[in-house]
């Protein structure tokens, strides 16, 4: 029997912006197939946590393993952060604000990184891009520019752009909060479909219904630490920690 190893393992991750301490010792394990929803107060460091996982931020202290190998190490003495760029390629991220490249067509947005960083031949990349767009019902937009798409379509393209690179872990940071309410469902549907395919993901959302539906686990982050960690029914429905309870009542307007 092979032992299952964690997909992600964070130990004592500390992060500060100047004098502002944002994360003060995050310990977290993610298992293959985990869909981890991160909730917490605004400014509590949720985005920072995801950005660190993406290798976008230095950390002061702590270490992160990915797929059983050392991914990120923060060396407090030298102030340097080591990030393994091969492992970083296994992670994909979609941001809150649209980050498509405005000067490139949709299909070029999808294929650019595949061609330039993964050495995929152009025809193969085009093929794969078109298939992804077809899956999302966006193949007619291949030659359009981002500005010609609705917000929901742009976020779906952004997801497709990340999927082009076959990530082993997807990060979603409030990808629907900038959208008009009627466009939220189409983006959430794509993420639910990914969930069905057992794509491991870490996501930040303020949508209670969506969190319940997609999460296999929910963590509540506040004050730079993980306050509560458990299955969605428990953390969202019957939290143990009073801070979690207070937050959920306030934000989701439900009595637990």
């Amino acid at each position: 029997m092979t032992e299952i190893q964690p997909l992600v393992e964070m130990r004592g991750v500390h992060k500060n912006y100047g004098t502002l301490q944002v994360l003060s010792g995050i310990d977290l394990e993610m298992w293959p197939g985990d869909r981890l929803v991160v909730i917490g107060p605004s400014g509590g460091g949720k985005s920072t946590l995801l950005r660190i996982m993406m290798g976008l931020e230095d950390i002061r202290r702590g270490e992160i393993d990915l797929l059983g190998k050392r991914y990120i190490t923060g060396h407090e003495q030298s102030g340097k952060t080591r990030i393994d760029s091969t492992l970083r390629k296994q992670v994909g991220m979609v941001f809150q604000h649209y980050t498509l490249f405005p000067h490139l067509t949709i299909i070029s947005n999808l294929t650019l990184a595949a061609i330039k960083t993964r050495g995929m031949p152009k025809p193969a990349a085009l093929d794969k891009g078109m298939q992804l767009l077809k899956r999302l019902g966006l193949e007619s937009k291949a030659q359009s520019y981002p500005s010609q798409l609705s917000g929901g379509q742009k976020q779906r393209v952004a997801i497709a752009r990340a999927l082009m690179l076959d990530p082993r872990l997807m990060l979603f940071d409030e990808v629907t909060s900038a959208l008009d309410p009627e466009l939220v469902a189409e983006v959430e549907a794509v993420m639910l479909e990914l969930a069905e395919q057992q794509m491991p993901m870490m996501l930040v959302t303020h949508d209670m219904w969506f969190a319940k539906n997609i999460a296999s686990r929910v963590i509540f982050c506040a004050g730079g630490v993980v306050v509560e960690d458990g299955p969605p029914e428990q953390v969202l429905g019957d939290p143990v920690n009073p801070r979690t309870r207070e937050f959920i009542e306030r934000v989701f307007h439900i009595k637990t």
Partner: peptide
């Protein structure tokens, strides 16, 4: 900054980022 973040997340090299983005 989001454009730079996106380049980073996609693993684009500094050269590709400069010339293509």
């Amino acid at each position: 900054r989001e454009q730079y973040d996106a380049c980073h997340a996609l693993g684009l090299s500094p050269w590709t980022r400069a010339t293509r983005i």
